[in-house]
């Protein structure tokens, strides 16, 4: 039983690592969005700097999973938690990279976006932030309903993205901002939309842990 105790402690450690990483990534996304909206270059630099820490957490989580596979030969629910843990870490790391992409866009912009575009972008960012919270809740509470809700939330984010792009390019040559700036804002929408897709992957991993079944939430 001693060995199982050590294994249980290690599985809890895996969960805590992922939650910690998830919290950090969520904060990076929030800061990156704020950097774009407020044209805050210092904040953007901090997001880029912080990504190293997220990458380190990804490697640490992967190392823990590899060690558990090698030493514990996990099966059944244990195996699913560890395999899904590795996938979760990869999704979170990619979400961190997308936060960096947002932050780099903030550095390229010459001014904050126009108010109506900023409004659209902010609404989309809030919807994505809600998805990240729901994804992490689904994982920590082992909640299949929360995981499944992510599919609907992602549809809403996809709609927001479409509206943002339509708004950006609806006015033709009379629109506010240069074409290059409008493109940069469209990219921001694209990065947020991709983050939403990674959160649906988190939902799929949660459902795999709970049921052993593959699902498609995106």
């Amino acid at each position: 039983m001693q060995q199982r105790q050590a294994f249980d402690i290690a599985l809890k450690e895996l969960k805590l690592k992922l939650l910690h990483m998830g919290g950090d990534v969520q904060e990076s996304i929030r800061h990156a969005v704020a950097a774009v909206l407020k044209h805050d270059k210092a904040l953007a630099e901090r997001v880029i700097e912080r990504d190293r820490e997220v990458n380190r957490q990804d490697h640490e989580t992967e190392d823990l999973c590899i060690r558990l596979i090698a030493t514990q030969q996990p099966v059944a629910g244990d195996l699913r938690r560890i395999v899904a843990g590795m996938r979760l870490a990869v999704d979170l790391e990619r979400m961190g990279d997308l936060a960096v992409d947002l932050a780099k866009t903030a550095l390229r912009l010459t001014a904050p976006p126009a108010p109506d575009v900023a409004h659209h972008l902010q609404e989309m960012a809030q919807a994505v932030d809600g998805m990240v919270s729901e994804g992490l809740n689904a994982y920590v509470n082992s909640d299949p309903d929360a995981a499944r809700r992510l599919a609907e939330m992602d549809d809403a984010v996809d709609r927001d993205y479409r509206l943002l792009v339509e708004r950006l390019f609806a006015d033709g040559p009379d629109a506010s901002g240069t074409p290059q700036e409008r493109m940069l804002i469209a990219f921001c929408g694209r990065y947020l939309e991709r983050i939403g897709d990674h959160v649906t992957n988190i939902g799929e991993s949660v459902l795999y842990i709970l049921t052993g079944e593959r699902s498609d939430l995106n």
Partner: peptide, 17 residues
């Protein structure tokens, strides 16, 4: 059996509980 057993007793046994 080793990825998603149906019975909780199977799961508990193969996972060393």
């Amino acid at each position: 059996m080793f990825t998603k057993p149906k019975d909780k007793r199977t799961e508990d046994y193969i996972t060393g509980r």
